[in-house]
Design a protein around this nucleic acid. Sequence first.
DNA 1: CCCTATGTTCCCAA
DNA 2: CTTGGGAACATAGG
Length: 258
Amino acid sequence: MPELPEVETLCRQLQKVIVGAEISKTRTIDPKLGTIKGLKGKQVNAIHRHGKALAIELEGNCSLWFHLRMTGRLLWHNGNGLLPHTRLVISFSQGRLLLIDIRRFATVTVRKQGNGLPLGKDPLVDFSPAHLWDMAQYSTLPIKSFLMDQRRIAGIGNIYACEILHQARMDPWRRVKSLSLEEWQGIGEATRKVLKRAIACRGTSVSNWRDLFGNKGGHQEHLLVYAREGAGCYTCGGTIKRQKLSGRGTYFCPSCQT
DNA sequence: CCCTATGTTCCCAA
DNA sequence: CTTGGGAACATAGG
């Protein structure tokens, strides 16, 4: 599930733990990840995030990009032995970084610096209502699908799309072409509010999300609509519904999201 | 046992 | 170029 707030949580925690450290060994356990080599002896210069993608920047203009997809986790581990579903181990002198992934969708890529990822703007860096209004004129998509399109905006997934649209009191099926500039400004404010609150809580642990140290996040206690089907809406008292939109479970309040 | 669900994205067809 | 549907995979629950 890791969406922007969860990846940001990992990014901040990794900065404290491995920046300045040197990779002593890597071990790829799941061959599906491909070949990961040439990292031994390299020092970690920085950790970056773009949308849901996370990069460990190494010396020599080299970076290691992770995408955790559905069930990928990064865990800082001091003990020996492997936990179930461990797919990759990166060893440092003071501990080991484990990539754990039940469903094996996560990807790891070694990249030489240069061409960036084919992603839209990160909404915490730049959420320009005017630019989004402009892009929306050429799209037939419903707002929820538009927010989740990573080439347009990078980092919003199913949980936070539902939460943002409730915060903005907008119907997830509303066509983006019909949104006014003011409505885009409202979406921008709701996006920042929801994502920042989730980051402050270190993510949403509705399922198996854990942070770098194996701890649950706290944002599941603050969810407005996600996973609340049949419960009462905090905004208007209506009943939260769940319906499919482009194949994804979509939680919303039909009485106050219009 | 079978069917559906799950936080994501890629690939392909229309 | 854009969009919708199925696939990639593992596990849980009805």
